[in-house]
Amino acid sequence: MPAETLNLVDGPSSVWSRLRIDAATASAEEPILASFLNAAILRHDRFADALAYRLASKLADAQLDAMLARDVVEQAIAAEPEIASRAAADMVAIEERDPACRSFLQPFLYFKGFLALQGYRVAHWLWKQERETFAFHLQSRISERFSVDIHPAAQIGQGIMIDHATAVVIGETAVVGDNVSLLHGVTLGGTGKADTDRHPKIGDGVLIGAGAKVLGDIKVGEEARIAAGSVVLKDVPAHCTVAGVPAEPVGGLCKEPARTMDQRIDTGD
């Protein structure tokens, strides 16, 4: 079943059904991994439970054992069910956009960008509960584990793909809309020591290429495209492609760049 046909209206139930089928198939094909797949997916009754188990196994450390980590994730999902539904939307986005993704197993079990993002969602919930020390602890652990540094106060939507993910940095006052695609080495950073808004605001459907730096309290309009290696220091209009250091508009209007993952620039030549 293509990812775009999955029904997410009822939350992650459709994704959960597909994930269980993928896990059962993989377990039959690779018996050596059957115990792992059973523990991570098949023995759970709900997507939320499996997500809590998987995140706990990744985020546990010497200060926070897996059982305690799982309790925290379960508390977060119980209080804010959108954490699970957004995770499901992220998985659909990854399968739709990433040709290297063979099934839902890859993001759920292995993809750093997906796992780091779900860990951030728990840290963000802790931040909103004014449990800042715990939120910072998870931020640090996520950075160590996945090489992705997302401040727990950042605001991030759903349907997000962080591809490859290594060296992605998202600052405290950054806002990322829905259906955004980021590649490795992206920085949504500040430009000084101001303690007010100092990070970018990224609209829905934006594609940010590998190694791009978007700096300061600037706005990137919906379905804009930022070319790999660019340094963006001023607002980017919607449906606009920018490239260079500093970035400037190039080519014509772009449409749904985050979904198509098309990074080619039409210069009209």
Rank of each mutant, 00 (worst) to 15 (best):
M1T: 13
P2Y: 09
D10I: 03
D10E: 12
D10T: 08
G11F: 14
P12T: 13
L19A: 11
A26G: 07
S27R: 14
E30V: 13
I32W: 13
A39E: 13
A39W: 10
R43S: 12
R46P: 00
R54S: 01
D61Q: 03
R70S: 15
V72Q: 10
A78H: 11
E80N: 15
E82T: 13
I83N: 05
I83R: 03
R86H: 15
A87S: 11
D90W: 09
L109Q: 05
K112L: 02
L115Y: 04
Q118W: 09
A123N: 07
W127D: 02
E132Q: 14
I142G: 02
S143R: 03
D149I: 05
Q158M: 03
H164W: 12
V168T: 08
E172N: 01
D178Y: 10
D178M: 09
G185R: 03
G190H: 01
G190I: 05
T191S: 11
K193V: 07
D195E: 09
T196R: 12
D197N: 07
G203N: 02
D204E: 15
L207I: 04
G209D: 02
A212G: 04
L215G: 06
A228H: 02
K234L: 00
D235P: 02
H239G: 02
H239W: 05
A243H: 04
V245Y: 14
P246H: 13
P246A: 08
E248W: 04
L253V: 11
C254P: 03
P257Y: 04
A258H: 04
R264C: 13
I265S: 06
T267N: 14
